[in-house]
C-alpha cells in the first residue's frame, strides 16, 4: 500500500464489497415487503416468511405438479419452435440482404405491437388448449431470435469468409469453425431475450383462456381471493425466471467477452 493511500482511513473491505451491497438491497426489499403487509393487511399481501412457507407447502402438494408440468411443457415446446425456426429464418434473412432489408422494419413493427391483442385470433385458429399456448408463446419469442440472428449473420466480417475461401474451407467445417463462432454471442443474446418473451407469452395465454397451467391457477386464485396462492405462485415464477436469466446472462457475458 502506498503512503498516500495509507493516510486516508478506509472502510473495512467487506463493507465495500459487492456482496454487502446485494445483501443491503435484499434486506431493503424484504423490509418493503413486510411494510406493505403491515400497511395493507393480510387481505392485500402475505408476509415474506408466510409466502415462503406456503411456497414450500405448494411444492410438496400433489395438485401443483400437473399444472407446473402443463405450463413447463407448453413453454418448452414453444421455446424449441421459437429458437429453431427463429435461427433458421434469421440466418436466411441475414445471408440474403434484400429479403433482410424488406423484412426488418416489418419485424420491428411486429416486435413493438401489443401481441396480447392477437391472442383471440390465435385461439380461433388453434382452439383452447396446448396448441394455442404453444403458438402464442412461440409468437412472442421468435421475433427477437430472428432479429438478433439476422444482425449476427450480417455482421460476420467479410474477411473471415474470404480467408475461409482462400483456405478452401466450405460446407460443415466452414460452419463449425467460422460461421458458428462468429455469430454465437449475438444469437445467444437473441435466445436469452426469446426465453423471457416465450415465458410471458405462455403464461399470458394460460391466464386468458386455458383450463390448466400456472396462469390458470393464478386466475382461479383471483376469483377465490386466495392471497397465499397468488403470492407464492408469483414468487415461484419470479424466482424461476430470475434465476434462469442470471445463468443465461452469465453465459451471454462470457460469450461476448471471448468474441
Amino acid at each position: 500500500m502506498s503512503a498516500l493511500e495509507a493516510q486516508r482511513p478506509r472502510a473495512p473491505s467487506w463493507l465495500a464489497g459487492r456482496g454487502f451491497d446485494t445483501a443491503v438491497f435484499a434486506a431493503l426489499v424484504l423490509l418493503l415487503w413486510q411494510g406493505a403487509h403491515l400497511w395493507g393487511g393480510e387481505v392485500a399481501m402475505t408476509t415474506p416468511l408466510g409466502t415462503l412457507l406456503f411456497t414450500a407447502k405448494t411444492l410438496a402438494s400433489a395438485e401443483f405438479w400437473p399444472h407446473a408440468y402443463a405450463t413447463l411443457s407448453a413453454f418448452l415446446i414453444a421455446l424449441v419452435i421459437a429458437a429453431s425456426s427463429g435461427i433458421l429464418i434469421g440466418a436466411v434473412l441475414g445471408f440474403h440482404r434484400l429479403s433482410g432489408e424488406v423484412a426488418e422494419p416489418v419485424l420491428v413493427a411486429i416486435y413493438s405491437i401489443p401481441k396480447v391483442t392477437l391472442y383471440p385470433i390465435i385461439l380461433l385458429f388453434f382452439g383452447i388448449g396446448i396448441a394455442a399456448e404453444v403458438a402464442f408463446g412461440a409468437l412472442h419469442g421468435i421475433i427477437p431470435v430472428i432479429l438478433f440472428t439476422m444482425n449476427a449473420v450480417r455482421n460476420i466480417k467479410p474477411v473471415y469468409i474470404k480467408s475461409a475461401r482462400v483456405m478452401r474451407v466450405s460446407g460443415w467445417p466452414l460452419f463449425r469453425t467460422v460461421l458458428l463462432p462468429a455469430t454465437l454471442p449475438e444469437v445467444f443474446t437473441g435466445l436469452r431475450v426469446g426465453f423471457s418473451l416465450t415465458l410471458i407469452g405462455t403464461l399470458l395465454s394460460e391466464m386468458f383462456g386455458s383450463k390448466r397451467g400456472i396462469g390458470f391457477v393464478l386466475m382461479q386464485a383471483i376469483g377465490l381471493h386466495n392471497m397465499d396462492v397468488i403470492m407464492s405462485l408469483t414468487f415461484l415464477l419470479v424466482a424461476f425466471a430470475g434465476s434462469v436469466n442470471v445463468l443465461l446472462l452469465a453465459i451471454d457475458h462470457r460469450l461476448h467477452r471471448r468474441a
Binding site: A36, G40, V43, A44, M45, F195, S196, L199, I200, L203, L204, M207, L218, M219, A221, I222, H225, M227, I230, M231, L233, T234, L237, V238, A241, G242, V244, N245
Partner: peptide, 14 residues
Amino acid sequence: SVPVFVFYPMFIVM
C-alpha cells in the same frame, strides 16, 4: 425476464 403480468392478480387485490 420476469413476466410482469404475474403481479396483476396481486395489484387487483391491493
